[in-house]
Design a protein around this nucleic acid. Structure first.
Length: 555
RNA sequence: GGCUCUAUGGUCAAGUGGUUAAGACUCCGCCCUCUCACGGCGGCUACCCGGGUUCGAAUCCCGGUAGAGUCACCA
């Protein structure tokens, strides 16, 4: 068969040569050891935790080594385009601190290895597809959907491996006149790789490919034998082909992607071989898993699991640093230890390594995120926290506006108990939770949620307690003096001034000072649990403090 | 079904032939304490199973089992 002629027939248009592209996209001039990584989202605009997870790895690998991290838009699946997706991708990633050095941006491409949008690289893919056809390594395939379906059926009854390969690849050996006739008749065709692999022989004889994966060690799997489609009928490349062409031409050194790509690795390797190129270092990451209703692990699905969406964390008001910190602990098993040893260092100082990446699927753990978030938020100043809450409220929760009305006031609330040297409070987790936690500081949201303690209620002392408290209340008392007065009230009414005394001889008392202060707490905040009452009163101010207490008695 | 990956407590995980099998989160108890949070102390709970190899196996080998992924003109 005259492959040259076939190539001309399939690609009649004017195309550049492979050499041309090799020349305009030369190997990058970077210091030895620099890694070039990329993120290749499809432009549905839906960035999920998995993307972010991989993006952190990409980002760290590149920036830690003085390399380049670029963004490539993989929009070869024309059916799923979403308007404005690129902007969404860049801004959501940016929110979590992921920034690109090169590639697609809001205002066009940056960098000299573009175009960075696959749909605009058609000529390049066609050039290399043509080359493969010329060399007899690819061919046009006219199989229709129905024909493929029936091949599949036959394979099923024969218990043969499904797919287009070997003898099943019926378009492999079409003669050139036939092809010409079909093309002239306007028949649609795809371009398939003519695989030289063969799995149809004794297992020991099957050629195996061995690839060193930076996360998993050596991968050992049978070679590819599928005549994978490289160019669709529309002329658009499949992921497989685009990946190989782009990552070669863009001089990517490390490809970080999910483990779901493992099975197609042999295809990619064969493509690299046939093109005469060296494959990048692959880093196949573990997938984020979730426990389903039956108690089984399964891959997080964007359809079923709202927590997979980055928006979920944004809406809940998790701080980006907390999400980042959490993902890093999942990403690198030794990050947590490092963090304990270096509580105040920026995460960038951590030496990230692919070897320490887990290769089994990690379950998403909200408890852990919350715990990490507490520590992260503790290190953020009240002023910054205010700005964060404000941004969050404006975007997702305008109802919280009253909380943000007075910056000074909110900052004092946020700082309650946080500036202790020894054991600072850590009760901020995420914006939704914070707003809920501090709602009683705002008359708009103040609600009486909890009941009075039974001990005091049963004795009928509630009103007496509040009345005596009110009568001795002096807003200028310091914390110590303030509490002494409560002890006094407790003693006068027959409650133990110290909880320990009550514990020793419960029969001697109606209750203890804790119960008395709980009465004050409930009257003041509507809850039985809160930070220190004295501090709350100082923030609330004398008038509001007195009003709340009076209001309770007058009910 | 084929191919592939994975397998240590409820979760995440150290561990690479000899350890009392780390640590973190959760849970429980105690302490601190005016409640909560924080903090401190303690506890529960683990090497998937079966065979080998070895003086000795969580670790090496073989065979199961289980879970996951993938088998598109999606990525």
């Amino acid at each position: 068969m005259d492959c040259k002629k076939l190539a001309e027939m399939l690609f009649p248009e004017e195309l550049k040569t492979p050499e041309y592209y090799e020349e305009i996209y030369p190997p990058r001039d970077l210091p030895a050891g620099s890694k070039v990584t990329r993120l290749g989202p499809s432009p549905t605009g839906f960035i999920h935790l998995g993307n972010l997870f991989g993006a952190f790895a990409d980002e760290r690998l590149a920036h830690q080594s003085g390399g380049v991290f670029f963004l490539r838009i993989e929009d070869t699946d024309d059916k799923r385009e979403v308007e404005g997706a690129v902007e969404t991708i860049i801004s959501s990633l940016g929110f979590f601190g992921i920034n690109f050095d090169e590639g697609a941006t809001m205002s066009g491409d940056v960098g000299s290895y573009g175009d960075y949008t696959q749909s605009r690289r058609g000529e390049i893919y066609r050039c290399f597809a043509k080359k493969l056809v010329e060399e007899g390594k690819a061919y046009p395939c006219f199989l229709t959907e129905e024909e493929i379906a029936s091949i599949r059926e036959e394979q099923e009854t024969l218990k043969a491996n499904p797919g287009i390969y070997g003898k099943w690849a019926k378009s492999r050996n079409l003669d050139i006149e036939d092809i010409e006739k079909r093309i002239n008749a306007g028949e649609k065709f795809v371009v398939r790789l003519k695989s030289s692999g063969n799995l149809d022989k004794p297992e020991e004889a099957i050629r195996r490919i061995r690839v060193e994966d930076a996360i998993r060690g050596v991968l050992d799997m049978p070679e590819n034998d599928q005549d994978t489609v490289i160019l669709k009928a529309t002329g658009i490349p499949t992921y497989h082909f685009a990946h190989v062409i782009d990552d070669h031409l863009m001089r990517t050194t490390h490809v970080v992607r999910g483990a779901e790509w493992l099975p197609s690795l042999p295809v990619h390797i064969e493509l690299f071989e046939k093109l005469g190129w060296k494959p990048p270092v692959y880093c196949h990451t573990a997938q984020l898993m979730k426990l389903d209703e039956e108690g089984n692990k399964r891959k997080l699905s964007k359809r079923l699991d709202p927590e997979l969406s980055l928006d979920y964390y944004r809406r809940e008001g998790y701080h980006p640093l907390a999400v980042r910190e959490y993902l890093l602990t999942v990403l690198n098993s030794n990050f947590e230890e490092w963090r304990i040893a270096n509580p105040d260092s920026p995460a960038e100082d951590f030496e990230f390594s692919t070897e320490k990446m887990s290769n089994s699927g990690a379950l998403f753990d909200l408890n852990k995120l919350n715990d990490i978030s507490k520590d992260v938020l503790l290190k953020i100043s009240a002023s910054e926290l205010y700005d964060f809450l404000k941004g969050w409220s404006e975007e997702f929760y305008p109802e919280a506006a009253p909380v943000l009305a007075d910056r000074e006031y909110l900052q004092r609330i946020l700082d309650i108990g946080r500036n202790e040297d020894r054991n600072p409070r850590k009760d901020h987790i995420c914006a939704v939770q914070i707003v809920k936690n501090i709602s009683y500081f705002f008359d708009e949201f103040f609600a009486r949620e909890d009941d009075m303690p039974e001990e005091v209620a049963a004795a009928g002392d509630i009103e007496t307690v509040i009345a005596s408290y009110l009568s001795t209340y002096d807003h200028s008392d310091n914390q110590e003096l303030w509490f002494d007065k409560i002890r006094e009230i407790a003693g006068e009414l027959g409650y133990a001034a110290k909880p320990k005394d009550f514990k020793k001889n419960p029969e001697l008392y109606k209750g203890h000072v804790g119960h008395i202060s709980t009465v004050i707490r409930v009257a003041l905040t509507g809850r039985r649990q809160s930070p220190d009452i004295w501090q709350i009163q100082q923030i609330l101010g004398e008038n509001r403090t007195r009003d709340r207490l009076k209001e309770y008695i007058s009910q």
